[in-house]
């Protein structure tokens, strides 16, 4: 092996690394845009679902025999609309942008809170929090999960301080009580973060393999071309 061979090998490795980075970025952007599009649909679906829930569960407020449209119906339309429309606009106009997925993460967790209220605190609706975290993990971005989990924690901490009965049912819970709820969110986060890391590593490996194949094929094509040229020259 001579110096020229070493330089050739290093140049090829550099070429592969550069190509792998480009392929990874391309694939990453494709994933982010695809998940943004999925959330565009989910945000719209949640809005409709929230309105249907409010209409079925609490259509009217009553005072004796007088009935009026329940506040939950207005909140499902207007607060639900506010929660959904901005993330939908971002997903439509700026798919793949870091801000888009962060806004989606905040909105998705606030949707959990709104749906819990619209269904009168049904324990089953709390599963929306955990389903949402799993869905957000499709972004393969730990920061998105961090934002979503922080929204849950801040909500519990703030309500626990301002009006503890609404979260814990007692007036004077221990100050650390919000951590108990946060623990189960963190519990799911651990597995989702591992899945995100594995997903990113797989994407890197895929990009690297494809880059190697492309660079080697290019190198082979160059050699074949050089050989054909040499043969053509010899014949003439």
């Amino acid at each position: 092996m001579n110096v020229l061979d070493l330089d050739d090998g290093a140049a090829r490795a550099l070429q592969i690394a550069e190509r792998a980075r480009a392929l990874y970025a391309e694939q990453r952007q494709r994933v982010l845009r695809r998940v943004d599009r999925m959330f565009f649909g989910l945000m719209g679906g949640q809005w409709v679902f929230g309105i249907v829930v409010a209409l079925l569960y609490s259509p009217y407020a009553w005072e004796g025999k007088q009935q009026a449209i329940h506040l939950h119906v207005y909140l499902a339309v207007f607060l639900g609309g506010a929660l959904s429309l901005f993330p939908m606009l971002l997903a439509w106009r700026r798919p793949g942008w870091v801000v888009t997925r962060q806004v989606i993460a905040v909105s998705q967790m606030l949707w959990s809170a709104l749906l819990i209220h619209l269904t009168g605190g049904r324990i089953e609706t709390h599963f929306h929090v955990f389903g949402s975290l799993a869905f957000l993990a499709f972004y393969l971005d730990w920061r998105v999960l961090g934002t979503a989990s922080a929204v849950v924690l801040v909500d519990h901490l703030a309500r626990g301080l301002l009006w503890p009965e609404s979260v814990y049912g007692i007036a004077n819970p221990e100050w650390w009580r919000f951590l108990e709820h946060g623990f189960w969110v963190a519990f799911e986060d651990v597995f989702l973060l591992i899945a995100c890391r594995n997903g990113i590593q797989d994407m890197w490996r895929g990009a690297r393999r494809q880059a190697e194949v492309e660079v080697l094929r290019e190198s082979d094509e160059l050699k074949t071309f050089a050989l054909e040229m040499a043969l053509a020259e010899a014949r003439s």
Binding site: L79, F86, V103, H117
Partner: peptide, 21 residues
Amino acid sequence: LGALWLAAIGAGARVLWSYQS
């Protein structure tokens, strides 16, 4: 738009909070 979005959510949450409590 983001600031308006947060303000709208804050206002809605306040109305909900006041009603529920």
